[in-house]
Design a protein around this nucleic acid. Structure first.
Lengths: 101, 101
DNA sequence: TAGGTAATTAGGTAATTTCCTAAATTTGTA
DNA sequence: TACAAATTTAGGAAATTACCTAATTACCTA
């Protein structure tokens, strides 16, 4: 777990928002954008970009940054890349702060 | 607790190092720089700057940033400003990540 | 295979962060 | 009062981050 990389990737308001939106996609994305695979796969780049009100390339780069830090997990399926939270890493992060930092 | 402000103040290698050094000053600062008040007060700016290998103004500013985020607590005593960790806030941060984020 | 949609990569400008030196302030002491 | 030590504030150069548009790549389907 690369603590500094993780903290850097969380130190931006939009990226932090994305993380919270992905905690409960049903509550934060329009129903028609979600499928029954959303819980497994996550949400695709353009839907997240729309929600963030930012360009697709910018958000794509943010998501890549967060995946590199392992905060998010990416799944490519056809033309789409879906991103979801890595709950295990977030628990590891919390534990690291609690007991190690 | 201002999550984004806290995460920003932790997203720098030197600031993160300072936080870990202050967890155990005895292990990270020369004995002659410490007093029996160190556990209560913390460590002063110039000692931390020396350990970090950076200028006093830079480190003073880092410490101020971390105090503003309430990660550190400052005590002015005479000409010195001592900084120590705010353990309560770090526990709050860990819990927030674990249960809220 | 051509055209369309989704995503990524490339390249750039603006804003922010990093970290310095010099100057000013605060406090203790001769 | 005057000088010294610790810190903070001010101001600035260099590096990084934030975000955009344009171009390219990946993949699907007619």
């Amino acid at each position: 777990m690369e603590l500094l990389e993780i903290l850097k990737s969380l130190s931006n308001e939009t990226r932090l928002n994305i993380l919270t939106w992905l905690k409960d996609p049903l509550a934060h994305f329009p129903e028609e954008e979600l499928s029954d695979e959303t819980p497994q796969l996550g949400v695709c780049v353009s839907d997240i970009a729309k929600k963030a009100g930012m360009s697709v390339p910018t958000v794509s780069d943010y998501l890549k940054t967060m995946s590199a830090a392992k905060i998010l997990l990416a799944t490519r399926k056809g033309q789409w890349t879906y991103y979801k939270r890595n709950e295990q890493l977030l628990q590891d992060l919390a534990n690291h702060i609690k007991y190690k930092l």
